[in-house]
Amino acid sequence: MAWKRKDLLTIQELDPAEITLVIDTAASLREIGGREIKKVPTLRGKTIVNLFYEPSTRTRTSFEIAGKWLSADVINFAASTSSIGKGETLLDTARNIEAMSPDVVVVRHSSAGAAEMLARHLRCGVVNAGDGAHEHPTQALLDLLTIRERKGHLDGLQVAIVGDIAHSRVARSNIHGMRKLGMTVTVAGPPTLIPPHVQEFGVKVSHRLEDAIRDVDVIMMLRLQQERMTAGLIPSLREYSRYWGLTLDRLRASARADVLIMHPGPVNRGVELSPEVADGPYSVILEQTGNGVAVRMAVLFLLAGTRVTQEAA
């Protein structure tokens, strides 16, 4: 199995062997983070541009560390959406960045499809670090790695993804990845936060937290954005957390004893997760963060190393 793609844009387009390759590579690279000297020369002389149109310290930092541990030069390009008001389009920015000859551009943007569009116009590799409510492939890959580490396998596992599915790129990427690797997925939340026709992606839908989390191996809680309230999708945070917040009592009453609790972060403690759950023994949230760097190293390694193939083709 060899990586053939110029870009990593979605989980939807990957086949199971490709997903497994990234996860395996990440598992091999994780050891670097435990070294005294956290650096290998693999991407020496390569340039990685972090192009972030949305504020995201966590993901940007994770890519930055990943690039640096691989000895790449990492440039953070804090583009703001306001530059569009100044007449510079995303493509203008992209073309300017291309003039710097990067090997990989990592892009985060509030518009779905932005990464795909950049990839069409740029010769270098593009990594989608989250595009609107579409996909966030590296998050799903690190989630899968985390689950596999803990459970030893992925095939046959049952997962509940709980919360604002409609606006979540994390949910979309995970649904695709988990389905491809033989996992069973239930999405759960109030109907206003479940996207239309989501059943067609091979998932079950539940409107009751207790039902959704019963007998599952993994519960993935999503962050609830405050603006969903003003948009009229939920009445109040109080009511949301009353019915959809995962508390220790609820967990003990309905979930398995060996269940894993995941969250893409940052956690709204007291809204979707009670503090004792977020910080408790079921939680693998910190492992997710650690695996994030490993997955991003794997992705950068695979993309930057296949560049010559692309040019030769």
């Binding site: 595009d131 996207p195 239309p196």
Partner: peptide, 13 residues
């Protein structure tokens, strides 16, 4: 349009 494709693409329908 709101439908399966909008859900897939993450665009508001």
């Amino acid at each position: 349009n709101e439908g399966t494709v909008s859900t897939e693409l993450g665009l508001k329908g």
